[in-house]
Design a protein around this nucleic acid. Sequence first.
DNA 1: ATTAGCACTCAGAAAGGCGGAGTGCTAAGC
DNA 2: GCTTAGCACTCCGCCTTTCTGAGTGCTAAT
Lengths: 357, 357
Amino acid sequence: MELTDRQKQILRAIVDIYVSTAEPVGSKAIAALPDVNYSSATIRNEMADLTQMGLLEQPHTSAGRIPSPAGYRFYIDELMQDYRLSLDETRSLNEALELKNQEFDKMMSQVGKLVSKMTDLPAYTVATRRSEAVAKHFDLIMAGPGSIILVLMLSGDEVKNKLVKLPVKVTEPELKLLAAVLNASLTDLTAEEITGELLEKITRSAGAASPLVPLVMDFTLECLRRQYGDVHLTGQMRLLGQPEYRDAAGKAQEVFETLDEELITNLPAVLPKDGPVQFLVGPENVAKELKDTSVVMMRFDIGDGMQGTIGVVGPTRMDYAKITAKLGYFAENLGRMFQKNGQPTPPALPDGMKNEE
Amino acid sequence: MELTDRQKQILRAIVDIYVSTAEPVGSKAIAALPDVNYSSATIRNEMADLTQMGLLEQPHTSAGRIPSPAGYRFYIDELMQDYRLSLDETRSLNEALELKNQEFDKMMSQVGKLVSKMTDLPAYTVATRRSEAVAKHFDLIMAGPGSIILVLMLSGDEVKNKLVKLPVKVTEPELKLLAAVLNASLTDLTAEEITGELLEKITRSAGAASPLVPLVMDFTLECLRRQYGDVHLTGQMRLLGQPEYRDAAGKAQEVFETLDEELITNLPAVLPKDGPVQFLVGPENVAKELKDTSVVMMRFDIGDGMQGTIGVVGPTRMDYAKITAKLGYFAENLGRMFQKNGQPTPPALPDGMKNEE
DNA sequence: ATTAGCACTCAGAAAGGCGGAGTGCTAAGC
DNA sequence: GCTTAGCACTCCGCCTTTCTGAGTGCTAAT
């Protein structure tokens, strides 16, 4: 697809204006822009061409133009200019980033809430393993008569725990023995490396606590095999702030039911494939209910072995540049919140960043 | 407030019909009911009286009547008949109850999702402590150089953990020592019972690991003092399925922003005060944004020392009887999901329950 | 006390009638 | 050749008007 500079300028202007007004853009509005020196008639001709090429659409004969999905795609790939966060925006992002250090899952969900708030759109977060998980430490704690708590530490500093009901009576020393055996035999092994043979050996060494072995192993293998963390979706209601859903609550609901399903059943579809950032524009989404919905995904770094994804969901007409910038800022600074320090340190304010709205 | 039997019958009928149709109810509709033997004119007279008493309202002169908040309140307190769950309903509730045993917080959030799905309304869950929490067990696990994981088991089988960055170099045996000291000195103590004196003693006994003590204690005290668990709010979008929000997406959004705040800042307001079930009808909610919104809350039992609350949020016009029945069923059967067994056992199907929609 | 009858009210749907934003095309201008 | 002024045309959205019918309140008869 080859466009002249003028066509690019017009397309970019249309996307920019439409994104902020949600109203079809007419030739006059473009002609009135400061750095446009053509008359509205010329622009009309160009717009007709762009429509022909499939980059613009006309809601009806006597309305202005709006970008088509292909138009958005072209914009994202070639026209979008880096949005520079204003000082104010940077400041409130920094404020937001002061999240309390807490359990991993809660932090992930907190991040989602944050992003949703800062973009004023629904957002989701997921954690994925970058590499095969291994067990780092086992712990068995008595929890009243008849039950114990199994604490399992994985690579990447994940800690999982489960209440296990005891099938047999076990004493404290016997538990200690089992824990020691587990730690000795299973540390640093992936799920695949845990063979039946190995399990037998463990069962034999476990003595009186051997009936516990299958219970423990079930849980352990399940934890090791899980490739994705939970999906945390929040801020759904913010979609209603968008004019396209103002009078069509039913549509918003449909979008969210579909999205909710998609996020769980078809997870890889909403994770960035290549590069740290990815866009799914309107019909590029598989589900037809999402054909007017776009997703911006951004990868970010967490501790070892893990990586996070933030996604923002909105109408096709969304401010891709601004959202990308905000997500980028999050991704850049979020890593350290998950680092191994007690207190997260928010990033210093960049000097002299400024931007008009 | 004294009502004749006939007035009660009419009020009940109006609530029942309005709840399911969301349309003002006219005198003819009532007269047409099978067990009503008065003419529409008589009913009109009665309706005029009920309106006078403030139990009914008229959207406009030539419309039927709808219940006023006071009308709903009267209905809930005196007229509501136990809704008997149909066999189908019981069956799908049972199906839903087959939730996977997992971490406490996840179960709570799962329960919320479930209730939301079964009532087709937004729902929230919170856990509260019934009694003072005490620490049951401490565990310190090395997690790579320079950091450890603190695992803390509380009464009620809660397990909390936190990654702690080490301010000093500590060896494995030193950690073991500290853990032993903590377990020996702090087990079964409430936050109040942990005195500065005691802390000093611990610090002295901890040897090389003593710089860790304040870090550990901060976290421990925070865990012990927390009275409420996280609030899990889900299914917000379901509110849009209700006709009152069909064309007023903005209103729904407002309701949810307010609710979200309320749930966190004013938690006790949405916990049942007396009795296992409580209703907040429309204007009984403090926030004015929620004046057309009702909440049904139900308490349920979890392990020792903890208790859960399920809340369902909906328009004032909601099927209080049905929702109460469903919540009741959940509350009755949920306890066992949180018990100390590996596999939850769904309740047996009750025999011969039947109910027409 | 109840009910049939009737006049009256009023929201919401249906129909008609602009106004104006925006287009496409033509013809003139550089 | 590209650009632009001018103009006829289209058609959505908005407003007003009309109409319908469900529902009421009141009165008078039973």
